[in-house]
Write a protein that binds this DNA or RNA. Structure first.
Lengths: 209, 209, 209, 209
DNA sequence: AATGAATGAGAGTTCATTCAT
DNA sequence: AATGAATGAACTCTCATTCAT
């Protein structure tokens, strides 16, 4: 029992942090706010995290490692780049669309600080891009994605579409289902990247129409 | 004459604040950073502003009062809701699109804190919505906007379209001209609100499809 | 039997404390440092000591009680104040000269804080002075020590000579044998306190000879 | 007036720090203790010093730079290594012998921590040794100090004699005049370093032999 | 009106101590 | 008896704000 508690409590702190950070912003949140929200003493946080920054960073790390890992499992389970991209998109949008507070922290707090963003980009985001590039490369081999496409650019574009959808959803007062946009995201991406071109130019529809 | 010098310095502080806040974020910025950027002593800021919060709030107040006032003048000058909305949209997008740092503060910093958001929403945003509702109401009278439309909802939708465009532009690494999207914004709004229905369902057009 | 194990652990903690305190200083040492050095859990220390201060104080108490007790036994066993003083000096110098870390704690850490010094002076040091005064009084009776000498002053002087020898040794980078200075210390003391005066100038003999 | 205050206040903080550190030890002293003793607010200390450590270090720096500088001036003013060494010794012993609290901090607190000692040794102590070595070298040229003597070793020995005298004085309950030991110190040093060995007549060495 | 030295409340963090196991 | 996770008081340091000049 005393050993099991550990992971439990770490998670309780992270859950509390998401709630507090989403509500007041990272800077305005005090460590004691998080502690109170987690129902523990201030000092206890420092048994599980190096400092306040580490709480935020660990939050990202945990979510991202889980997300990237889930993505990798899907890729092995599913055949074909389009279906794989759909799985990734659904996971991405369901993850954040299922927890508005988490999404707020990811889309708003994370971007706030060069410090966090740099650390985040250097680690998990890179892993995510690697996963996407693996899928795209396979798609190029199997003929579902244009061969001449630069993989790095394409992976960023795909991420950008998803990311923007989440940001829009976060900042929007409307309560629509984010996960349902997964198909639209993949469609948008493939309508510019699929080996067989359609006539539609999806890029122009976004950000302005 | 002493009034002019005074307002001059007040403005210099606000300009400095926009730069500093945009770069480091409101919380991470120290009052002394703003003072240094404005080329004045720390204490001088308190001759023009009640406190640090007041600097940020005054910033929003200044921009918004000017913006809303300009909008009102346009409404009197221009005939027809569609043209009026276009004027408002152009002004909105030109204002923020012409000063990325100001846009960062408006789109990111302002949203950070419930405290600021609440105050902002209660005052200038309400004035802005009132202006939009006046236009919409006139449009309903003149027959260019659907009569059964709830005005409050419609004004928020119009603001939302513009706001999301700005946020996207702020967060985007691309350097496109924001003001040029004004027509698209009005078109999007009217394609769902115009008295003569088109086949498009606005909800589906948004979010990426 | 359970008492033996108990005392065993108490001693292990004290030994660990000497090492840790000597290396990092009392204030910079954490209780957990001592616990780790003793190979036990943090909380276990509190089964044997009231608090951190008590560890340091008990350390002094243990050493001093043993030292004073040994001194008393010598006094009963040996005849004549000069020989008794020599025995005490040898014990004092061998005790600390045989354990540099212990000496560091005694000479440096103990002096650090008025709090410790006061407690120490009030108890064991007083016992030590009492022992010395008993010897001196006997010496005065037997005619080996000057009768008009104020006993309190003399006991402090004797202690001072030894103490300073230890401090010098602790702070010195040289690795000489401290116990060998016992004779010199007694000689120095008696050369100023002996009933029959010699012509030696004590000042020149000091500093180690 | 507002400008002059600056150095004044810095000095007041240092003076207060000497008193507080000498009484309670560096670690046990709180920044607020120093502030209170200096009659200022806690935060004010940080206008003059980087942090608590910096107060202690600055204290050493100030005293030592003054001391070394004074030593250099004496060396230029006085002829002959023996007289120069005497001047340095007198200055050293008068400086610390004139302020017991300062001496406590120098002899006890400074030694406590490798951190401080290392910084101190690397800067001012090195300057002090350089000064001593310059004197010794000149003495070797003029024939008052043995030519084959290693200068580094000799400078350390001289410093060691003075330093130990101060430590003894600090730890001693007696209230003797420390500065009066300067002659004895130089005599002790030259009785092992002088080119022509005398029979230890301190008075004669004074003249420059 | 302007300054900037001074303030002190409050932040993050440490660590001696407790207590359920 | 022993543990070590949890506690929270107390520390150092920051920085928004004040006010004598």
């Amino acid at each position: 029992m005393p050993r099991v508690r550990t992971d439990d409590k770490r998670q309780r702190i992270l859950d509390a942090a998401v709630r507090v950070f989403a509500r007041k912003g990272y800077f305005a949140s005090r460590v004691s706010d998080v502690a109170k929200a987690a129902g523990i003493a201030d000092g206890t946080i420092y048994l599980y995290f190096k400092n306040k920054d580490d709480v935020l960073v660990s939050l990202f790390d945990g979510i991202m490692s889980e997300h990237v890992e889930a993505g990798r499992r899907e890729v092995e389970r599913i055949e074909g780049a389009p279906a794989q991209l759909l799985a990734v998109a659904e996971h991405h949008l369901r993850l954040l669309g299922g927890n508005r507070e988490l999404a707020v922290v990811f889309q708003v707090e994370l971007r706030q600080s060069t410090k966090f963003m740099a650390r985040f980009t250097a680690t998990w985001l890179q892993d995510y891009f690697d996963l996407l590039q693996t899928i795209i490369q396979a798609g190029q081999r199997e003929g579902t994605i244009r061969r001449e496409l630069r993989r790095k650019l394409a992976s960023h574009a795909f991420f950008g579409i998803l990311d923007e959808m989440v940001t829009t959803w976060v900042l929007s007062p409307q309560e629509y289902d984010l996960a349902q946009l997964a198909e639209a995201a993949v469609d948008l991406f493939l309508n510019g990247a699929a080996a067989t071109k359609s006539g539609a130019a999806p890029a122009s529809s976004r950000g302005g129409t």
